[in-house]
Simulated scan of single mutants.
Amino acid sequence: MFNLAIPEMLFSKAEVDGAPGYRVTACTPDPGPLTTTGGLDVLVGRGLDAVDEADVVIVAGTGSREEPDARIVAAVRRAAAAGKRIASICTGAFVLAEAGLLDGRAATTYWAYTRELGDRYPAVDLQQDVLFVQDGPFLTSSGYAAGIDLCLQIIRTDYGAAVANSVARLALVAPVRPGGQTQFTDTPLPPERGVSFADTRAWAMRHLDEPLTLTDLARNAGVSIRTLSRRFHAETGLSPLQWLLHQRIERARELLETTALPMDQVARASGLGSADSLRQHVQRRLGLTPSAYRASFSRLATSG
């Protein structure tokens, strides 16, 4: 049920200029009640004809790695031939691999099944220790919850960071854990594994425009710099300064999308310093200059 709930929960919250950004439809080879784990039934009314109508196709994982249903594999192949974007959550990657869509492409699945996926489909360039991977029009996520990151990335690609972050806030999930070689970042943020410094991270988010130092963060947390660095990394997978830089780039993205501020003001407001520093960091992370990013994703242009 979680696999089915993730896309509906996130895509249904995406609004652009007050209008829904997506319409979500669940489908199955045999419409009707489906038994899920936990003994609960889900009623799915549409057959695989819905795949032919979709712009984005997401194959939910089932926890099973048995031979994929040939009807689903055929529907996914047709969708790929039609140029649709296709994604999988968790073990849904086995369906994409069976359809031959991942041959020679980077992909991932739940960590417990990566070896099995690699053994069964050796042509897949299997990526481990990532939340999700995008290679061309195909996206694959690791475990169930990483499907949240995958769906947010699709929203971010379609409508920009501001819309994606708004959806993340409504869903009470972390807005910034992107990853994959074509996803506007090279390294995904790992999931947070602790909350002892959550208040300090929230405080830092409110002060991104200030020149925060390790001393400032340690003072707020009431610990030494050495303790801050060690425990911060244990909780976030990043050093405090790496985490700050990631959040500042995300703040800059939102400002580029939602305001007409000059580049030097965007840089100051996001804590990146100067317009030159803004350009350097944004281009390295996003592959676009700040001006090009604004031209592609500005909400002001679409609303005007």
Rank of each mutant, 00 (worst) to 15 (best):
Q153S: 01
D125Q: 13
S303E: 03
A80V: 04
L152P: 09
R279E: 08
L300Y: 08
V44L: 11
T236I: 02
D209C: 06
G92I: 09
D30L: 08
G39C: 07
G179M: 11
S141D: 07
A74S: 15
A198H: 13
F197I: 00
R226I: 08
V133K: 12
M263G: 04
L286A: 07
L272W: 06
V76S: 13
L261A: 08
G47K: 06
R65Y: 14
Q127S: 04
H233D: 08
R23L: 10
D158H: 10
V44E: 01
R169I: 00
G100E: 02
R46V: 03
T213H: 13
F11A: 11
A75Q: 07
V95E: 12
R299P: 00
L189V: 15
S291M: 05
A93N: 11
D158T: 04
G83L: 14
L152V: 04
Q134N: 15
R78W: 05
G18M: 14
L126S: 00
Y293F: 15
L150N: 03
P262G: 03
D186I: 06
F94Q: 11
C27I: 10
A82G: 13
E235L: 05
G45H: 09
T140F: 08
A269E: 15
Y22M: 14
A164R: 04
A168V: 01
I148L: 15
I72K: 15
I155P: 12
A234T: 07
Y121G: 06
L40N: 02
G287P: 02
A162Q: 01
V16N: 05
R231P: 00
K13W: 10
D17W: 10
V16L: 10
E254R: 07
A99P: 06
Q242P: 02
D125G: 00
R299V: 01
N220G: 01
S166V: 00
M9Y: 09
D103H: 12
P29K: 07
A123Y: 00
W203H: 11
P31G: 04
G83V: 11
M205N: 05
A82S: 15
A97L: 13
R226V: 14
A204R: 09
V57I: 11
D149W: 02
V124P: 03
S166N: 10
G92H: 11
F94N: 09
A168I: 03
E254Y: 03
M1Y: 11
V195G: 01
R71L: 10
V163E: 02
L189W: 12
Q242M: 04
S277Y: 00
R177T: 12
P178A: 12
V133Y: 03
S270T: 00
L261K: 08
G160D: 11
L152K: 08
P290W: 01
M263H: 11
R23C: 01
A81Q: 13
S270M: 00
R71Y: 14
Y113I: 10
D135W: 08
A218C: 01
V24G: 03
Q242L: 07
A93Q: 14
W203I: 00
A174T: 13
T258M: 05
V44P: 08
A269F: 00
P175T: 06
F232V: 06
R253S: 04
A97M: 12
A292N: 02
L4Q: 09
E15T: 15
G304N: 12
G136S: 05
E257Y: 11
F197G: 05
A295H: 09
V76R: 15
D199H: 04
V173K: 14
Q127N: 04
G104L: 08
D55L: 07
L10R: 06
D17G: 09
H281M: 02
C27L: 02
